[in-house]
């Protein structure tokens, strides 16, 4: 059965590591849905978070291949519910939304969004949450014909594991 698997890898912050990771997906003809690289809390070690829709057998093979790669210190795969898992999105919203206070409260204020800029043409709104939540708001704004632009950050994740056990894994 195909579903979304999130691979979290701790890698040496070095040229070519990312290529090696994506090549493991490319080799098996798997499309990467989202990819995020950032510095971890260990110096010189980056966290790579990749989500892709595939089967458990395939993701196991990918992870096993990655686990063998020299500059990948630790790698595992997860389902969404196993991770603390957030994304941020920016919405470019038409000024028309301000015309009706009730609607504004309803759509934006009540959904934990934050207006970060208003200018003469539109307002920029920020929201974080699960992909589902972000998509929901996007659909709503689109439906109201108020969405002029949209961008998502990709996943930011944290293990539920303790810091100590993680440090052990990568050192």
């Amino acid at each position: 059965m195909k579903r979304e698997y999130i691979v979290v890898a701790f890698v040496n912050n070095q040229i070519s590591v990312l290529n090696r990771i994506t090549s493991a997906y490319l080799k098996r003809h798997i499309n990467i849905e989202s990819l995020n690289v950032s510095e971890s809390y260990i110096k010189g070690v980056s966290t790579v978070v990749i989500s892709a829709i595939t089967t458990k057998e395939t993701i196991e093979m990918i992870v096993n291949q990655l686990a063998n790669a020299i500059d990948i210190l630790n790698v595992d795969f997860y389902l969404q519910e196993e991770l603390i898992y957030k994304e941020m999105a920016l919405y470019k919203v038409s000024l028309k939304i301000l015309e009706n206070k009730e609607r504004f409260d309803n759509v934006l204020n009540s959904t934990n969004t934050r207006v970060i800029e208003i200018n003469n043409d539109f307002l920029i709104v920020e929201k974080s949450g699960s992909r589902n939540e972000l998509e929901k708001l996007k659909d709503k704004l689109e439906h109201m014909n108020m969405l002029n632009g949209f961008s998502r950050s990709g996943n930011v994740v944290l293990h539920r594991e303790s810091m100590e056990s993680l440090m052990q894994k990568v050192s």
């Binding site: 040229i15 070519s16 290529n19 090696r20 090549s23 490319l26 080799k27 063998n68 790669a69 020299i70 500059d71």
Partner: peptide
């Protein structure tokens, strides 16, 4: 060369 050989090397470095 690095990109070309990534899928067929155990490790590579420029």
């Amino acid at each position: 060369t690095i990109s070309i050989t990534i899928p067929v090397t155990k490790w590579s470095y420029q």
